[in-house]
Design a binder for these strands. Structure first.
Lengths: 153, 153
DNA sequence: TATTGTTATACTCTATAACTATA
DNA sequence: TATAGTTATAGAGTATAACAATA
């Protein structure tokens, strides 16, 4: 019944709107020294301590230079530690600092709460549908990132 | 049952991933001379011919300078016509050119099709849920943009 | 004086190309 | 030579502050 095209149309129309709201939300908190991509790096490193730069780039779907710069900013701010891997000196070993973890948790929670305020107006079934839809979309597009790197046409 | 926080968590985790995929999708087509924000401007002007810059800024949730620059790029590329409003010369009157409409339709359709390919893997019920969720989110966040402008804390 | 828009400036995100260091 | 990462450079998107033009 529902065509993929209609689905795509809705996604294309709505996702940029929600994304903009999220970015604004993050920016508006003045203590929030973390943009969305920076927060995502910290969240990833918190769950994958010791990851390499390539790991981060792959997870975020970024090129290596883009990831390098992003991580560099976090290192400059003492939110992430970057060390040379002892085994293979070409690799870099990344981990959040204590402060990095703290900031991550704080910013993360603040963003979640502010967003939750808005979502609080939804009915139970609407919230359920949103959660299911997010899981579905994540399952499609998380894979896509990995695939995309080697698929430059 | 479903907490707004869990819902917010899912949205925060998933929307940036989908957004990145959309941006990449738009960029990868080399004829596609349109970024997501530019396409959004054209779509809006196509449906609201003669809109002012403020109208565009409000619709996109941008500041006036940001919108001015964005529209300026489209004017430079002959995709949009910008004229001084005859009634009140402070206002600007915006409209897509013929070429603007053509490019908009082409890019829009291409993005939709590429996205639809991925979404085509979903079951009927999954597609239905995604569409419903998008409508729900749009209803919350479209309002937010307007409200947000005056709500700088 | 209030409103609409533009310009100047700055920062972030992202890409490609060229490079360095290590294996 | 191949791999991991960085640096150089460039362009888009966005914001704030200062300005110009019109009402």
């Amino acid at each position: 019944m529902e065509s993929p095209e209609e689905c795509a149309r809705q996604v294309l129309e709505t996702v940029p709107i929600v994304m903009r709201a999220i970015r604004r939300e993050m920016r508006s908190h003045r203590e929030s020294e973390l943009s969305v991509p920076r927060l995502r790096v910290l969240i990833y490193l918190n769950r994958n301590e010791g990851a390499s730069l390539s790991d981060v780039a792959e997870y975020l779907g970024l090129t290596l230079p883009a990831a390098s710069k992003l991580v560099g900013c976090l290192v400059d701010r003492s939110l992430v530690i970057r060390e040379i891997h002892s085994g293979d000196r070409r690799f870099v070993t990344l981990a959040p600092t204590e402060r990095g973890r703290t900031v991550m948790r704080k910013v993360s929670a603040a963003a979640r709460e502010r967003l939750a305020e808005r979502l609080g107006f939804l009915s139970e079934s609407e919230k359920t549908i949103v959660i299911q839809a997010m899981r579905t979309l994540a399952s499609i597009f998380s894979v896509e990132q990995k695939a995309k790197i080697g698929t430059e046409e």
